[in-house]
Amino acid sequence: MDENLRIRDYISKRVKYLRLKRGLSQDSLSELADLDTKHINKIENHAPNLELVTIEKIIGALGETEANFFNWRFPTSSEEIRELNDSLEKLPDEDQAEIANALTLLVKKINKRFDS
């Protein structure tokens, strides 16, 4: 796959994931980022031309830092985690976000038990 397409794919998925994680609609994000709703839709669907200033606006509107937005590290420290990650990537984005949120809640609950 062309390197530029991989980066565009990553940005598209990351914007959508973080938007859904925060419970924002495309309209809400477009207002926060001072962008047109159609522009957010195009970005999430692999816009052909993506300007850095637009990415910066979206990152700010999502309340993220650039370092967190471009977190290229994914959990792959064990075979089980790699398998889970591979399985999740095959699901639609909305399902991925729901499962990630559920797993996060579960892990936090388990961590609280160990902290007590």
Rank of each mutant, 00 (worst) to 15 (best):
M1I: 04
M1D: 09
D2E: 14
E3T: 05
N4G: 03
N4F: 01
L5F: 06
R6E: 15
I7Y: 05
I11M: 04
S12H: 02
S12C: 06
R14A: 04
R14K: 15
V15A: 02
V15H: 00
K16W: 03
L18S: 03
L20G: 05
K21S: 12
G23N: 11
S25L: 09
S28P: 00
S30T: 08
E31L: 12
E31F: 09
L32D: 06
L32A: 15
A33D: 03
D34W: 01
L35E: 03
L35G: 02
L35W: 02
K38A: 15
K38N: 10
H39E: 13
I43Q: 01
E44P: 01
N45Q: 10
H46I: 07
H46K: 14
H46G: 04
A47G: 12
P48I: 13
N49L: 09
N49G: 04
L50Q: 03
V53K: 10
T54F: 00
T54A: 05
I55N: 01
I55C: 03
K57D: 04
I59K: 01
A61N: 02
A61L: 03
L62E: 00
E64R: 04
E64T: 03
T65K: 07
E66I: 10
F69N: 02
F69C: 04
F69Q: 02
F70R: 02
F70M: 02
W72H: 05
R73V: 11
T76F: 05
S77G: 15
S77L: 12
S77N: 15
S77V: 09
E79M: 05
I81A: 14
R82Q: 12
E83F: 06
E83Q: 14
E83M: 08
N85R: 12
D86T: 10
E89A: 14
L91S: 06
P92G: 09
P92R: 05
D95A: 13
D95M: 10
Q96E: 11
A97M: 14
E98A: 11
N101E: 14
A102W: 00
L105W: 02
L106M: 11
K108A: 14
K109D: 13
I110V: 14
I110N: 07
I110Q: 12
I110T: 10
N111C: 08
K112V: 03
S116W: 03
S116G: 07
